[in-house]
Amino acid sequence: MTEVRNDWTKEEIAEIYNRPLLDLIYEAATIHRENKDYAEVQISSLISIKTGGCPEDCAYCPQAARYSTGVNVHGMLPKEEVVAAAQKAKAGGASRLCMGAAWREVRDNRDFDKVIEMVQAVNELDMEVCCTLGMLTESQAERLADAGLYAYNHNLDTSEEDYKRIISTRTYDERLQTLENVRKAKITVCSGGIIGLGEKVEDRISMLKTLSNLPQHPESVPINALVPVKGTPLADQAKVDIWDMVRMIATARIIMPKTVVRLSAGRTEMSVIEQSLCFMAGANSIFAGEKLLTTPNPSFDEDMAMFQLLGLKPREAFKNGRPKGAVKKEVAAE
């Protein structure tokens, strides 16, 4: 069985990333089969519970208030609408619902109280619940954990060295502190990055080093291909090459062998053949449903047809156990 390490060097990761492509895919696929039911892919659905108007300046993001991107700003969705979306996603095969709010940070106010209620309501559908709400304190993470939050997403986006080129309104250390707060609350960590931002290969390797050298590997690492949006500073970036995605996924699989590697944004630009190479290289999760917050995504029906063709099957919820606040009611009543 492959050893789980938290002491990878940039040189070691670079050597893996730059291997001949077929050798790289073969090694990643071998490790994937050792550690996972490789035909099992988690389907997650993403819903924007509060859209646009964000004070941050993330250069890729259509929800930043300072860019004119045509995104309609809307406040918090009603809980009933979120539950209905979760039910639809579950019927489509999703076992996890991720709720995103365009905030810089969580504030202890009525909107956060509403998020807590949403987390509890979606839990009752027997789905894993994930949130991505910006920066989070220890006490806020505890509240989410008590409500039954399964995962918290907070991406690093790029390397520490490249970070200031992409975002100036918060620091890399603040991102890492949020991940630490999430971990202390015993919520699973979902953290990855975006390629195609104009970064160098060295930046990709540095980001993977940071993720793989955390005290505990993230349970989930999303690998996103930039979806350029008109009005953002990165609107004119070239489409990410599929081989770059495959290299990132394969390298993540090798250095974080037990982590769920998510083939995330950018799938609409990929053929089924290209996506199948990503699954071969170790991806074992996707986001499904027509939208990823504000950008297009393949539909559930398209994905189910692809799963059938490739012999893949959806992963069940809570495969690795339930968090403290997500115990089923009949269990809690005993």
Rank of each mutant, 00 (worst) to 15 (best):
T171F: 06
T169V: 14
D111S: 14
A141L: 02
Q140G: 09
L133S: 05
M127E: 08
L125E: 13
E138G: 11
S139V: 02
Q140S: 02
L156E: 00
T132L: 14
Y172K: 15
E160I: 04
L156S: 00
Q140V: 08
E160T: 11
D173P: 00
Y163I: 03
D157K: 05
M118W: 00
E124Y: 02
K114C: 13
K114M: 15
R165K: 13
E160C: 09
D157E: 15
E124D: 11
D111N: 15
S159A: 09
N123W: 05
G148V: 03
V119C: 08
D146H: 13
E138V: 09
C130S: 11
V115M: 15
N153V: 09
N109W: 03
E124I: 11
L149T: 11
L136N: 10
C130P: 04
T171C: 10
Y152F: 09
C130N: 05
E117F: 10
E160P: 07
E117R: 07
Q120K: 11
V106Q: 06
N109D: 12
Q140P: 10
T158R: 05
V122K: 01
V106Y: 06
F112V: 04
L133W: 00
G148M: 03
E124L: 12
M135H: 06
N155Q: 13
G134T: 12
S139N: 12
A121L: 04
Y163E: 00
A147H: 01
L133V: 10
H154I: 06
M127N: 13
Y152P: 00
R143A: 13
I116H: 06
A147I: 00
G148I: 01
L125P: 12
V106F: 03
T132N: 12
M118F: 13
V119Y: 07
R107L: 15
E161H: 01
V122Y: 04
A141P: 03
E142R: 12
R170P: 04
L149P: 04
Y152S: 06
D126Q: 14
